[in-house]
Amino acid sequence: PRATITVKLLKQESTGRPITLEGLFVRGSEGKAQGKLMQSHPLSLCNTSEDERQESIFISIVKLESPESKVPQCQPLLDKARLALQRGAQAVIFDISDDPSAAQELRDGSSLADPVVLVTSSDADELMGLVNKNEEAMVYIDIMIDSPTWPHYDV
């Protein structure tokens, strides 16, 4: 289940063209969501870390680091996603460019209440680039409708 991620910069004039990116839903978490893009450090989603209240409606983006960087894996990624959603995130985007194995760990999201999307490569760089430059942006997540590519079966 693919996701379209439409990004609209807040500082640009209203005519600014939105950027369209793509990701992959964690299975079972497909859905629509919108909110301001906000970074969450991987360590901010441990059960010991405190709840950092956000005023605006936001979507969390988490840059996952490679296993070599030895970031303490304080809890499973699904629990991290759940914690972010419990703290008010409308959806969670994981940049797994440096940690592809995360896709395996995040294969079943049926217990998630809201969308969780994996991004990588150029889509991830685009989003993290905005974060790094602190360019405020609204993000709209939607389910990409694939045109059916399979023949009709008569049984």
Partner: peptide, 28 residues
């Protein structure tokens, strides 16, 4: 250890890691 986007990931012994919020960014 650190990274461009997340800042510090782990600290030298006995130092505290603080997650600093700067607008959209949250860096260690």
């Amino acid at each position: 250890t650190c990274s461009v986007y997340n800042g510090c990931l782990t600290c030298k012994p006995k130092l505290f890691i603080h997650l600093e919020r700067d607008g959209m960014r949250q860096i260690g």
